[in-house]
Each structure stands twice: as C-alpha cells, then as structure tokens.
Design a protein around this nucleic acid. Structure first.
Length: 834
RNA sequence: GGGGGAGUGGCGGAAUGGUAGACGCGCAUGCCUUAGGAGCAUGUGGCUGCGGCCGUGCGGGUUCGAAUCCCGCCUCCCCCA
C-alpha cells in the first residue's frame, strides 16, 4: 500500500544530475494509479459541508448517460470541469464537486429488446465500466455522493415531487394531439422534436391524440424570460428566449353567423392588429373544425382533396419557407368587424392547426407569407400601413416595418405603433376580441410509453377517478420481469401484477398508470440530491440546501440549451413556490463547452465512440487531459486528431526533467539572472490564473509551456539562486495541478513538499515584478515598423523621441522628409508621421 | 426565413486599436544513437535587387496606425422555424 512517506522513500529527489536516467522515470503507467490510490486513501476530495471557514463553491458537470463507454468527448467535457473545480479549490474555496449517472432512458430498453439483457443489468454494467474509466481520468469527484437516477431511492423522489406538483396544480392530465415517435414508440415533449424529427433517433414525428400528463411550465414563461439572476453564455440565453417565444397580440373574431352554424365566428391571432383594415381573406388550417361546415357544396370536392393531400405532408414540409404557398377557397365569407367587409375564407396548408387558433387573417400588404399567398391566389392587396415616402402605388413586396395608418377608417394618420394600441382598445371596447399573450413554449409533456423510467404514481379507479398513490407507498417500483416489446403502449400495461392495484381511496379494483416519466424529470433536480444523497426522509436536506444551493458553476454542452436547462429552471421555481428552496435559479454560472468532433462527425452517445482507454495506456491521463484542453478554446470545441498529442507528452517530459534537477548545483551568483527568472515566474502566475478564471485552458497551458522554456533557459545560463529556483518549481507545479493532477502531485512529493498539491493555495503575483529596467520601443514611420530601440523603463518622452528619430531604421525613411507628427504610445511604440 | 458564432502560415490556434502568427504540431538541418516513428539543439508566412515589398475570406471606409472599428459582399458551422 502506498502512503505519502512510501512515495518519498521510493522516489527520493534525484541528485545525480543525469537527465537521461530521470527522463526514464516519468512512467505514467506506474505514477498515475499510485497517485490516485494516494488521493483515495487520504480521501482528499471528500466534501465537508460544515467547513464554513472557506466560501462555498458548488461546481458540477452535467452527468453522463451510462451508454457503456466514457468516450473522448466525455473526456473533453470532464477534463475542463475538473480543472475548474481543482482551480477553485486552490483559490481557497470549500468545493463540492459531485458526479453521477443519468441512468434512465431508451438505450437500455432498446438493448433489452435487441439483446435480451435486462435494462437494469445493462445500465449497472455500463455504470461499473464507466466508473472504472472515470477513475482513469483522476477527477476530483467526491464519489461518496454519487447518484444513479434509476435507483428506487432516487426515483422515489421524482414520484414524491410529481404528487406535490399534482397537489399544487402544476401536474395535470390532458387529452390532445401529441408528438409521437413511431420508432421509439413513445410520445415526446416539444423540446425533444428537432426539425420535425425525434431528437434521439431522428425518425419523423407524427401527431396522435392521447391523454397524457403535463407539467404547467408555461405558468412560469414570463418569469423564466427574466435572466437577470444568472450569468450564462449569451447564446444559451437567446436560445431560451426564442424557445419561450413570448408574443403579444390580439385575438379577433370574424363573424360567420350568416351560415347559421353553432359557431358564430372564426377566431384568429395576430401580432399586427394595426394591419386589420388590410385583411382581404382569412385562411383556415386544413384540420380546422370549421373547414367542413363552412365549405360550400360547389367547392366541396376541391377542398376535400386539398385537405386529404395536406394530411399526407409533414409540418416541416408545410411550413418550409421555400415551398410555394397553396390554398383553395371554401366559397364561404366572413365579416371583418372593423370595416364590415366580407372577405373570402380559404384553406391553406401553411397554417397549422396546432399553432395559435389554427386560423390567420390574411394581410398580404404587410406579411410576406400572406403576400405570396395573395399573389398566387389572385387576391387583392391593400396597403393600410404606409411607408414613409409611399406614393400610393402597388407594393412589390410586403411592407413589414412600422409606418402611418391609411385606409384604416378613424385611425388614419396615426403612426402604426399608436394605431396598434388604439385599434386594440376599440376591439376590446366593442367585444370583437381581446389582447392576448401567446408563447411558443407549450406545457411539458412528461408521459412516456416506455418501461425504463420512473413510474407515474397514480391509480385510476372507476369510482374515485384519478387517485394519487399515498406518499407512504412510495416508491412505486418498476417490476423486474416486464416484457420488452414495443407495442405503442407501455410494457407495464402487459404486466398484470403491476397494472392491478387497489384504489387507495375506496379499496376497490384500480389500474395503475403504466406510463413512465420523461427522463428530463430526473435531471431537473439531481443537483439538489447531491447535497444529501442518502437522505431517506427528504428529497434533500433542507438545512444543507439552505447554505449550499444553488449550484455556483455548471458546465455542459450546448445541446441542452433548451430541454434540460429550461426544465431545471422551471422545476426550481416550482420547488420555490412549494417552499422547498428560497432562490429562483438552480445554476448561477453556466459555461457551455464546445463539441469535440472527429472527421466522421459529432462524437456523442449516438455515434463515434472513440475509446480513450488505449490513449490513456499509451500517453497517460495527464497528457490526454492537457492535450484536449490545449486543442483550442474550450467553448469552441474542436476536431479530434491524435497528431499533436506528442507535443504535450514531450512537454510533460520536460516538466518532469526540470522539476527534478538538484537545486544545490546552482551558484546563485547572478542577481540579474534571479530577477529575470522571478519576472518570468510572476508573469506566468498572472497569465495562468487569469486564463484559468475564464476557462481559457489552451492559453493557460501555452503560458505554462513558455514558463518551462524560461526555467530551462535560466538553468542553462546558471547563476540563479537555489531558493528562487525551488520557489519557481513550486509555482510551476501549483499551476500545473488543475490541468495535469497526477504528475503535478508526484513531482510535488518528490520535491519534498507537503501532501497534497491539490490542497495548496495558488501563489500570488506581484505586479511590480512584471516590469523590467529596459523596454523595447518599436519605431514606426507612417505606421510601419522601421526599427526598435531599447530604453530605460523610466525614460521620458523627449528622451525616447530623440532615440527614435536617431535610429538607423527611422533615419532611412525620414531623410529629406518633413516630420508632421510624432505619436508616442508609452512603453510600446513611437510613430513618426512624415 | 430568423437568431448566434466563425473565416489568420502546411495544421490546431494566439493577438479585440499599437512589433500579426504567442504556444504547439508538422517540416528542414545538425547532434546523439547499433537502430529509431525516441531524445536534444537550431531554423521555419510568401517574395526579395537584402533597401524592402506583400500578407489575417473579398471590396470599400475611418485612423498616425486596423486581424481588431464602420459600410457592402462571399463562405462555413451551430441553434430555431
């Protein structure tokens, strides 16, 4: 068993001075496991929630799905996250850095369908393997707080929160059109449909009508638009704003009472009520319930055929901007209440039944799609908001911008922004419609017709209706012996033992809900569970939460900009309103790292598994971590290629070499050499700390490389003092520790310093040491570099001007010329304008 | 169609108004070696008459000075429809 003293015993500081034998000693295959064991035995990454002497820092990387292998993309994500945690620890914070597994989800179940292996077995095997791979990375996780979301001890609390949501009216069941993935045989939330396809398997999603459970996320839509409490990348904020998609407008009704139907009007939603006098037609979605009733007999065959054709097309096809807008008249008319005009009603497939009211008022003069549609269908185009210099001519394209109301009755002459308000007032006063706010975001559909998820804890009773499972009966556990064949219904439906349960209310026969919850339920609050993962009385310990939540720093990929990050923000607000937490936002700072790609494409759980294990074996975890962080800016991602990794390995060899030289060989008789090295040290500290704080790992490593080059130069030139050398090596290792934790620890111990380097504070830098005695000033003539001069740092402008003007390079270009101007940028350059 | 980001050597990238190409890869030459796909050292944007000239996607502009700021255009990537 290795201990700290053993390490020192086994590997004393080498005093032979022979660099050849030293170099051979950097054997990552020996060092890395031994150092990790040392960390483990001393438990240095265990979080102590009661250590209040240091400020708290809750830092978390988005937990992985246990797909089976930790691929190189995971390494890219987690190397940076771990460096951030280690750096913060060394800045003096009490750091909580946990990790876990997002363990429910379809791949496990699909594996069961394919390979006859139980999802639970598959998942836990994968977790075991990924834990082993995580160990190879040497991350500073407190594994004692690991959570696995498919453990009943975890999902019990999903069910608990579901029941709480039910009580507070946030969870509700509703029947209606939902997104259905034919491949995965389940419904999907709107957020999980990308380009009309399933986010997971890319199958085209279809609409189905079925009763499903929802969370009322839209209740928080306005509040979630307020991002003032978070420091997140702009692109994530913008994505969420767009997804929530708040728009203010007016619902206005067009009268159809002349047809004697039950429905007396067509409701339409518009954000441009200022253009209502320009309505020359109304378009219904092909699925609109009024289509059938309103279509006049002589138009029937055409309309029926059009509706049937539209049903065969997907939403993406129908709303594609490049596609020609088509439509057919119903032969019916409706009345615009503002001007009592009769306008034709058409059916057009660019209008979707699921969006707004499923009907739009057509204003061709001021809407691009309506303009195109009117041209195509030969409908009139009437200008009602005039461009500034409008001459009364026909428009060649829709005029979208604000202008002045014309052809708008009493509202003529008003600026259209004012017209918007005045017309809205008139509509509301006359009962023709009302102002409404709509959102693009829909309520969160959480039902899934799959096995491997959290059972929704309700029982349906013929007499009592929908009855929540009592809290004391939680968790409702997944039965182990389900049949995994996709049928469009949850496998649990086929499981009699699970399905039949007595009604908790009346004791009569009841049927359990057989759908399971969307797995985004699990990740919406998992950060809170890290605070007290073993608590069996509460989802999380309120006292610990009071002082430790929210998460201070969260890192993860952009793919969760909407979905996970949106759901968590909603979930936290719901928890807040139920009194569980007293803050609004779950994740204060967010950093979105980029995507690592291969030449094949994106690395993800869906493709390109590139196993890092052989790379770790060949190069070592430290080399791989540093290489990934050196590829480019962390937030930009990059293309994976193995070429170049040798550069990092060579550099770590040089680090090894320079850190094990015997400082007693140094003479210490050159004060200038000392000040040069000291400046390099302080400069490295400044640059590395500043870069690490802003996650610029690539330039932080570059600065460390430069620093090692300086150390080598200083050694070769000789003359530096042994004390300064030791101090400089110390600095190097402290800065290296977050990025290459194993080698930094090994070299730290070999130099005789106290275990562990990861429990040290970062060195500071002294600005005054960053200035030198003489400084090189660039001499320019007309902005072009002609010479450089070396002057004392405290030289005045006059002195510098004289030296610059006298420099050979400047003289060549100023001879026989008239000097018009001289520009001096202190400490940098002197520009002569001739 | 809308929103966001980016275009710099052979390559990854650095520099956000002040010496373009830090740092690294690759390449070249040399040293060491029985050998090397190892290590070390030096060099490395292009052209050159050795004075310089050209050079950060393209075209214009502002400035003493622009990769950086402004206007117009082209291309690529990501997100949303």
């Amino acid at each position: 068993m290795a201990t700290v003293s053993d390490t020192l015993q086994d590997s004393p500081v080498n005093t032979s001075g022979s660099t050849d034998s030293l170099r051979k000693n950097y054997d990552h295959t020996e060092i890395e496991p031994r150092i990790r064991q040392l960390w483990q035995e001393n438990d240095i990454y265990r979080w102590n929630p009661d250590d209040n002497g240091r400020p708290k820092w809750f830092v978390q990387s988005m937990f992985p799905y246990p797909s089976g292998d930790l691929h190189i993309g995971h390494w890219f994500a987690f190397s940076g996250g771990d460096a951030a945690a280690r750096f913060k620890r060394m800045e003096g914070y009490n750091v909580l850095h946990p990790q876990g597994f997002d363990a429910f989800g379809l791949p496990a179940e699909n594996a069961a369908i394919r390979g006859n292996v139980h999802p639970k077995l598959w998942t836990y095997d994968n977790i075991a393997n990924m834990r082993r791979q995580f160990e190879l990375m040497g991350n500073s996780y407190d594994w004692s707080r690991q959570i696995i979301t498919c453990d009943p001890e975890y999902y019990k609390w999903n069910q608990y929160f579901f029941l709480k949501f039910l009580e507070s009216g946030i969870a509700y069941r509703s029947d209606g059109a939902v997104n259905w993935c034919p491949e995965d045989q389940t419904t999907l939330a709107n957020e999980q449909v990308k380009d009309g396809k399933c986010e997971r398997c890319e199958t085209v999603v279809v609409k189905r009508n079925m009763p499903q459970w929802y969370f009322a996320i839209t209740k928080y839509a306005d509040e979630m638009l307020d991002m003032s409490g978070i420091e997140w990348p702009e692109k994530v904020i913008v994505s969420q704003e767009n997804w929530i998609g708040r728009s203010e407008g007016v619902n206005i009704r067009f009268d159809i009472s002349e047809y004697g139907l039950d429905t007396k009007s067509i409701g339409t939603f518009t954000t441009r009520i200022d253009t209502v006098f320009g309505v020359t037609f109304v378009v219904l979605a092909p699925e609109h319930p009024l289509v059938d009733e309103l279509t006049q007999p002589d138009h029937k065959p055409v309309v029926d055929e059009y509706v049937a054709a539209a049903a065969r097309e997907t939403e993406i096809e129908r709303t594609s901007a490049v596609r020609e807008k088509t439509g057919v008249p119903t032969g019916a008319y409706c009345i615009n209440p503002l001007n009592n005009e009769r306008v034709p009603i058409l059916v057009g497939d660019y209008v979707l039944a699921t969006y707004g009211t499923g009907a739009v008022m057509g204003v061709p003069a001021h809407d691009e799609r309506d303009f195109e549609f009117a041209k195509k269908c030969n409908l009139p185009i009437r200008v009602v908001v005039a461009p500034e210099d409008w001459d009364g001519d026909e428009l060649e394209a829709a005029y979208i911008a604000p202008g002045v109301q014309v052809n708008s009755g009493d509202f003529d002459g008003l600026p259209s922004q004012d017209g918007m308000e005045a017309i809205s007032d008139a509509i509301e006063a006359n009962g023709w419609g009302e102002r409404v706010v709509t959102y693009h975001m829909r309520d969160w559909l959480i039902s899934r017709q799959r096995y491997w998820g959290t059972p929704i804890p309700v029982i349906y009773c013929d007499d009592c209706g929908t009855v929540p499972v009592p809290y004391e009966d939680l968790p409702v556990e997944l039965p182990a012996d389900a049949a995994f064949k996709p049928s469009g219904r949850s496998p649990l439906t086929e499981h009699e033992g699970f399905l039949n349960a007595p009604c908790p209310n009346c004791g009569g026969p009841g049927k359990r809900e057989t759908d399971t919850m969307d797995t985004f339920m699990d990740s919406s609050w998992y950060h809170m569970r890290y605070l007290s993962p073993q608590d069996d009385a509460n989802p999380f310990d309120p006292e610990v939460a009071a002082s430790w939540a929210p998460v201070d720093q969260y890192t993860g990929g952009m793919e969760h900009a909407v979905m996970h990050l949106l759901y968590s923000r909603f979930f936290n607000r719901a928890l807040r309103d139920m009194g569980y937490v007293d803050f609004d936002e779950p994740y204060v700072h967010l950093f979105s790292h980029g995507t690592l790609t291969t030449d094949v494409g994106k690395i993800s759980k869906r493709s390109n598994p590139l196993a890092p294990d052989p790379l770790v074996q060949e190069y070592g975890a430290d080399t791989l971590r540093c290489y990934l962080m050196f590829l480019g800016p962390w937030d930009k991602g990059g293309a994976w290629t193995e070429s170049g990794i040798n550069g990092i390995r060579r550099w770590l060899h040089r680090v090894w070499d320079v850190c094990l030289r015997d400082h007693r060989e140094l003479t210490g008789d050159d004060a200038t050499a000392d000040s040069v090295l000291d400046m390099a040290s302080h400069n490295a500290t400044k640059r590395v700390i500043e870069d690490m704080r802003s996650y610029k790992y690539n330039t932080a490593i570059a600065s460390l490389m430069t620093y090692v080059n300086h150390l080598n130069e200083a050694w070769d030139n000789g003359g530096v003092s042994p004390e300064l050398w030791r101090d400089s090596i110390r600095r190097l290792l402290l800065h290296l520790a977050p990025l290459a934790p194993h080698i930094a620890e090994e070299l730290w111990l070999r130099n005789g310093w106290e275990f562990s380097v990861h429990q040290q504070l970062l060195p500071e830098w002294d600005e005054s040491k960053l200035t030198v005695d003489t400084v090189n000033i660039v001499v320019q003539v007309n902005g072009r570099v002609r010479d450089t001069i070396s002057v004392p740092v405290d030289a005045g402008e006059k002195e510098i001007a004289a030296a610059a003007l006298a420099s050979p390079g400047a003289l060549r270009h100023t001879q026989d010329k008239h000097i018009r101007r001289e520009i001096y940028v202190p400490g940098r350059l002197f520009n002569i304008v001739v």
